[in-house]
Design a protein around this nucleic acid. Structure first.
Ligand SMILES: NC(=O)c1ccc[n+]([C@@H]2O[C@H](COP(=O)([O-])OP(=O)(O)OC[C@H]3O[C@@H](n4cnc5c(N)ncnc54)[C@H](O)[C@@H]3O)[C@@H](O)[C@H]2O)c1
Ligand SMILES: NC(=O)c1ccc[n+]([C@@H]2O[C@H](COP(=O)([O-])OP(=O)(O)OC[C@H]3O[C@@H](n4cnc5c(N)ncnc54)[C@H](O)[C@@H]3O)[C@@H](O)[C@H]2O)c1
Lengths: 224, 224
DNA sequence: ACGTCCTTGTGAAGAGATGCACAAAGTCAC
DNA sequence: GTGACTTTGTGCATCTCTTCACAAGGACGT
């Protein structure tokens, strides 16, 4: 209520989470030569309802043309603008184990506006090793990296070390963290953490799987 | 409102997504010898509000004791029951590239009630190779694996192949899929798909990062 | 047995997200 | 220029999730 319509600048988090999906779909359409697209088409391509698509897109501004649809290229441009893809974001990965190496080798980030600029590990035996064209460096290099523009840190260390690594990232000045360790991180205000937890995802699947097996003797209520 | 509270069997999706978190925290408390815990403590350990914790837990039943709190072991047991962790779930990983190998090598799934029973790849050159103690097999083995109890499939192939792999999983009888490929999957009713998209996570971080850099001082438009 | 103290479990209010349905606004054919 | 047609943008109703706030329930000391 009283905390007013500065909502103008505040795109809902759920919408933000869907924007990359729209963007990906748009790139696909652009690739196959489609120049104009309706909210219905975009909805079909991303698996959401067209009304939601329109409401989401209207958060960015009025970039559609009634009776016609959206210009694929222009809409893609506006979304990437909203997402901050105006330039590449430098990313550092901390923890060069199984997962860290897979991430380092992944070529898909580059096309989404991210550049992996550093691979860090505590283990001195790894320092100097080349992985995917980058040399593994000590975690103490973080402050230097931040001065060079590092903005996003990825934590791929064991859970025990995750809070420590997080603290180092924050101390160095990183304010956006993607955490793969299955643990909750405590960070100061202003730092955004997102967590990817594969075990949790599997557990959610197991929940639904179990529900299917166990016949719903009670009222129907077969989940959505 | 009047929509029944046969909630008994219909746990809200958001709640399900938090249960693994609670469970992990409880295991931690149990490990350090704590036998009883309040919703406030659990809230602190998982980063949610205590009221939410209580409402979530009340979905499972009344396992707390007023004035005292919850018995750590019993609550953990009830949550794992709700999540279907009564037995190990067999999991197959399809696509033995960078990511698939990291997943196969990950030891953390075992403790959460999952057992990786098969590694599959289309590439014949990989067939027979041992990874993390398992032999890589052709995707055509899927029907056989389902007969042996396979319930959950993980897709770690390139995006191009993801829909094809998904179809094969579904045809073979798998009804729970975890998808790492950055693409939308189309599946029949009754099949549950969860998607983990690392690029999307980074894009969301970039969105917030950009917002921080761009000072909110100019009240009007950077966009419209 | 009784009173005090503590924490749960939950109605009810508040926020937020989704879906509906349609007026508004444009294109295009003629 | 006009009318038929298409699709956006959005007000409103609905549904879902969160937060508040407190009565109910139980433990424990005396
Ligand atoms: N591998 C997977 O598929 C997978 C799946 C789900 C979750 N995870 C999680 O991802 C994280 C990493 O998994 P992994 O399999 O790559 O582990 P790993 O043990 O293979 O690698 C961990 C790496 O982190 C480094 N490290 C440890 N402490 C550090 C510190 N304080 N600072 C810097 N580096 C440090 C180690 O030297 C090691 O190289 C874990 O938290 C794990 O639970 C991994
Ligand atoms: N590596 C990462 O860190 C990372 C990060 C984000 C997303 N991803 C996504 O995960 C997926 C896998 O990534 P990756 O780096 O491991 O790729 P990769 O190219 O290293 O491995 C892909 C594997 O899948 C196999 N494959 C291809 N088509 C198949 C089919 N139809 N059936 C069975 N197997 C098939 C290939 O033989 C190969 O072994 C991709 O979709 C990628 O976008 C990976």
């Amino acid at each position: 209520m009283s905390i007013d319509q500065s909502a103008r600048r505040g795109i809902p988090e759920v919408t933000v989470a869907r924007l990359p999906e729209y963007l990906r779909a748009l790139r696909g359409f652009a690739e196959q030569g489609t120049t104009s697209i309706s909210s219905e088409d975009l909805a079909a391509a991303t698996g959401v309802r067209s009304a939601k698509v329109r409401k989401d897109l209207s958060q960015l501004g009025s970039y559609g043309v009634r009776g016609v649809g959206y210009d694929v290229d222009h809409l893609a441009y506006q979304i990437s603008l909203a997402l901050g893809q105006t330039h590449d974001w430098p990313v550092a990965i901390v923890g060069m184990g199984n997962l860290g190496r897979a991430l380092a080798a992944y070529r898909g980030f580059a096309t989404k506006g991210f550049r992996i600029v550093a691979l860090l590990d505590q283990n001195e035996l790894l320092h100097g090793e080349r992985i995917a064209g980058l040399v593994v460096r000590p975690v103490t290099d973080l402050p230097e990296l931040v001065l060079e523009g590092l903005a996003i840190g990825v934590i791929a260390t064991p859970a025990d070390s995750a809070q420590d690594v997080s603290d180092r990232l924050v101390d160095a000045g990183v304010r956006s963290i993607l955490n793969f360790a299955p643990t909750m991180l405590t960070v100061p205000d202003g730092v955004v953490v997102r967590k990817v937890d594969l075990s949790t995802e599997l557990q959610i699947l197991a929940f639904h799987e179990q529900r299917k097996v166990e016949p719903p003797t009670h009222l129907q209520e077969a989940r959505a």
